[in-house]
Design a protein around this nucleic acid. Structure first.
Length: 578
RNA sequence: GCACCCGUAGCUCAGCUGGAUAGAGUACCUGACUACGAAUCAGGGGGUCAGAGGUUCGAAUCCUCUCGGGUGCACCA
């Protein structure tokens, strides 16, 4: 049930009727007709712009169309009054029974808010995909939280979602990892080692070194890379992926697929993807122009194998093979996305860190080329996270080892706070994360505000039970006993939920869910406090059990929607605060 | 030099495929608990939506340019 969609459908029906009457010309496009909640409550419950968007093409004044439309609309018994306002808005006031229907729908229909927007379409959401060279840090955390919430949101909106992690275990960085593990291995054998050549000095590798010693004894001591590199690389990436899985568990993230880059090599799959592009005439040998501006010091013209990504909106063509014939990192990425298309996904989403911004166009170009423009790829970039402690910026440095890890963050503030806070911002806006503020249990901390609303509802319900009021079956509550303006406003807010879900899902913007939940909680806290001034608005009416049941039905519905919303964000709702 | 993202109240940020008088929080000021959690609520002041043009019934939103900030820019992933 989506009340806004229902009313919009009714408006379209009325417009069709006006067309049949000959009032409107045939063949009009009603696509721009919208139904929105008005910003100002005095403008009624819903507003439509129908008259204004049609005025020009029809050649009539907006108010003339509005009047004709209003005449049709008032015939609908859900609509109690229609008012023409401003330049031609139609403001609708809905019958109180409509809001009762919303509350009932929330309580009785587990699918309230869910949408068939996705229509079961297969959607692949790839996120995190951090290199398997160490545990996840704060930057990864944002992408993790965002991608996970987005995936849940899309599933809620009716898509068949696959959550996927691409393991970059095929490039030079895993060789570096292997050498670093080897150094720790030597160290475990009592040797003094130094970390040079960009090897990873992180302490998290100490255990990997020790474990390797347990596994192979001293077999690799004093041996050259040709003996141990392959083995240690596999050993190291497995160890690092185990750490990363621990981090994902800590945040409550469950991936459906871990896809290995390495699995693409030596199996002909990269070649197959490139062959596909070649058949489309998009692969050629050529030499790129030097970049404008600052020239790299060792620049020299080189002939490479290039992908004609400029045919699909990229700025320059991109190399897929190095001059020595080896694949660039782009080639396996092409093959990986080719595989996603081959697996039958209708749409792809990649969640990257902001430092991959320059990679977006070529990836989109590749997917467009491989799928003949059929499979859309949306790339969401998550901006940087700035950490603060005691109001001071908390600098991260890989070298100094003051890198904040996901596990430290979650241990400090908990997964729920981490998730909610990172979702109260658009993905493409930088994010401040202040340790002191987010651990505070106050209005500064929206997650507690929302949780508090939910806890309040359950507190009331507990109290009602103590009073001996039966709240086990609220479906028979007489909701006409809770029709104060403030109570109807609460129900109206609930009616927006399915609409918010659709807007958020269409835009791939999970932060809208977080903001809506905050608004909904605010509405509940407000209604609660109205009870201070107006005793008839208190939820528990000792001398009026039917009214109490109606009011509890209303706020119970609020807690249900909060549960759904927090569920999308990956946060567990609470019934009690402590 | 080029590309992408961003610029909204003192501060941190929302703002729906273009809609009505641009909204929250925070800070500041004034009020509200003999009810179920005051971890809350109500009210007030605070804006050239970076700037300038353009598109139209209507622009914070779309287009162009300028200014300011971030990120990335051939055989690194």
């Amino acid at each position: 049930m989506n009340l806004f969609a229902d009313i919009r459908a009714t408006i379209i029906d009325c417009l069709d009727a006006l067309t049949n009457d000959g009032f409107l010309p045939t063949g009009l496009d009603f696509g721009n007709v919208t139904v929105d909640p008005p910003r100002d409550a005095t403008h009624g419950d819903m507003a439509t712009n129908a008259a204004m968007v049609l005025a020009k093409t029809v050649g009539l004044k907006p108010r003339v169309i509005a009047e004709a439309l209003a005449e049709k609309l008032v015939e609908d018994d859900r609509i109690s009054s229609v008012e023409i306002a401003g330049p031609g808005f139609l403001n609708l006031v809905l019958d109180a029974g409509v809001w009762a229907g919303v509350v009932n729908a929330v309580l009785l229909d587990d699918n309230f808010g869910k949408s068939n927007l996705g229509a079961g379409k297969k959607m692949n959401v790839e996120y995190i995909s951090a290199n398997p060279t160490g545990p996840l840090h704060v930057g990864h955390t944002r992408g993790a939280v965002f991608g996970d919430a987005l995936a849940s949101l899309l599933a809620y909106a009716g898509f068949d979602v696959t959550r996927e992690y691409y393991i970059n275990d095929g490039g030079a960085q895993v060789d570096v990892l292997a050498r670093s593990v080897y150094l720790r291995y030597l160290e475990a054998h009592g040797q003094a080692v130094t970390f040079e050549d960009g090897t990873y000095p992180g302490e998290y590798l100490i255990k990997a070194g020790e474990d390797l010693k347990v596994k192979v004894g001293d077999a690799y001591v004093g041996q050259g890379e040709d003996v141990w590199l392959d083995e240690v690389r596999a050993f190291g990436t497995d160890a690092m992926m185990a750490l990363i899985r621990e981090d994902l568990d800590a945040l409550g993230i469950k991936m459906d697929v871990f896809y290995s880059e390495k699995s693409l090599y030596g199996t002909g799959r990269i070649e197959a993807a490139i062959e596909d592009l070649k058949n489309k005439g998009l692969i050629y040998k050529g030499t790129l122009q030097p970049p404008k501006g600052k020239l790299p010091e060792d620049w020299e013209p080189r002939e490479q194998t290039l992908f004609k990504s400029t045919d699909f909106g990229d700025d320059v063509d991109r190399p897929i093979q190095k001059s020595d014939g080896a694949w660039t990192y782009f080639a396996p990425d092409i093959a990986y996305h080719y595989d996603k298309i081959y697996r039958g996904f209708d749409a792809l989403i990649d969640v990257f860190g902001a430092d991959h911004g320059g990679y977006v166009k070529r990836m989109k170009a590749a997917v467009a080329a491989l799928s003949d423009n059929v499979v859309p790829l949306d790339v969401k970039l998550t901006q940087l996270v700035k950490l603060y402690k005691n109001g001071e910026p908390f600098k991260m440095s890989k070298r100094a080892g003051t890198f904040i890890m996901l596990r430290d963050l979650v241990a400090e503030v908990g997964p729920d706070v981490t998730r909610f806070h990172m979702l109260t911002r658009k993905n493409d806006a930088p994010l401040d994360f202040d340790f002191d503020k987010v651990t505070e249990q106050s209005k500064d901390n929206p997650v507690f505000y929302v949780q508090y609303a939910s806890a309040r509802v359950h507190s009331v319900i507990r109290k009602a039970v103590e009073m001996g009021i039966d709240v086990s079956d609220l479906s028979c509550a007489d909701l006409s006993l809770a029709t104060h303006t403030a109570e109807l406003a609460m129900a109206a807010k609930l009616a927006e939920w399915p609409r918010v879900v659709e807007i958020a899902a269409k835009g791939h913007e999970p932060h809208r869910i977080a903001f809506y939940l905050y608004d909904l909680a605010s509405e509940l806290h407000g209604l609660w406090n109205r009870g201070n001034d107006d005793a008839s608005l208190r939820f528990l009416q000792a001398d009026n059990i039917p009214a109490t049941q109606a009011k509890i039905a209303l706020i119970k519905a609020v807690s249900v929607v909060i549960s759904h919303g927090l569920g999308i964000l990956g946060i567990t709702p609470v019934e009690e605060m402590r």
